[in-house]
């Protein structure tokens, strides 16, 4: 059922932080495969290590030990610049706090990753407008984040994440700062993106949100407790 090479291939991954003299082991020997087109939810209580795992998958941090292959490439061997390029091309981030730049308009926010990719102005505009249309916010493209509701801001953030057509979307508690109804709409949107072919990795502590995913991975105390496997 799985394609020959998993998109994400994690094996024996461990990570720890130094807190003074003590070592705080956050991830302990985690192994995980995620394939193209999957919708995975990683669930666990706070302090379980799920955010650290997301940072690892998102190439925001590099593990102390073990191997992480993204698209067949060993992340630990990559330079800071290559990591930036990979985040830009292969990953789209959706944060709990939206993390939009407040001084830029919705359109400019969506354009930002494309600027860093070095696309010419016209192409950038076009891609940005397209992805704003996909999240249904074309009409508000010239508004600044402060002029948008929470749900709309999260949609702009999603548009920014998908603008560069990345293979993986990483959503860290995307509904955490939204009310229930808006949260449902956002999850619905994420589902639709998955149906359109994006691989989704959703981090949450909320089981109802996680239940929307095809595969649920429970993480506790830095180890994978239950891996739901792919829903057939």
């Amino acid at each position: 059922m799985s394609s020959p090479q998993p998109l994400i291939q994690i094996s024996g991954l461990s990570h720890w932080y130094k807190m003074g003299d003590e070592e705080l082991r956050v991830l302990k020997d985690v192994s995980l495969h995620i394939h193209h087109g999957e919708f995975v939810a990683i669930i666990g209580p706070s302090g379980s290590g799920k955010s650290t795992l997301m940072n690892m998958i998102g190439c925001l941090d590099v593990p102390n030990e073990g191997s992480y292959r993204l698209d067949g490439q060993e992340v630990r061997e990559l330079s800071d610049n290559r990591l930036s390029a990979i985040r830009n091309e292969k990953l789209g981030f959706i944060f709990q706090q939206f993390n939009l730049l407040s001084k830029l308009t919705a359109l400019e926010n969506v354009e930002l990753p494309l600027i860093y990719r070095g696309l010419p102005h016209k192409e950038r505009r076009m891609l940005a407008e397209q992805s704003l249309e996909r999240v249904g916010l074309s009409s508000r493209k010239l508004h600044r984040p402060s002029e948008l509701s929470g749900g709309q801001q999260q949609r702009v953030a999603i548009a920014r994440a998908i603008a560069g057509k990345p293979s993986i979307l990483l959503a860290d508690e995307p509904t955490g700062a939204l009310d229930t109804n808006t949260g449902k709409e956002i999850i619905q949107l994420i589902r639709e993106l998955n149906e359109q072919g994006h691989t989704i990795i959703l981090i949450t502590h909320d089981l109802t949100v996680a239940s929307q995913a095809d595969r649920i991975i429970h993480i506790q105390d830095g180890v994978i407790a239950i891996d739901g496997g792919a829903r057939v």
């Binding site: 930036s84 390029a85 985040r87 990753p113 860093y116 990719r117 920014r160 560069g164």
Partner: peptide
Amino acid sequence: TREIGIRKAIGAKRRD
């Protein structure tokens, strides 16, 4: 700092 973090997360290089 946060803005820098966001920019880096979405692909800004050190040089940028």
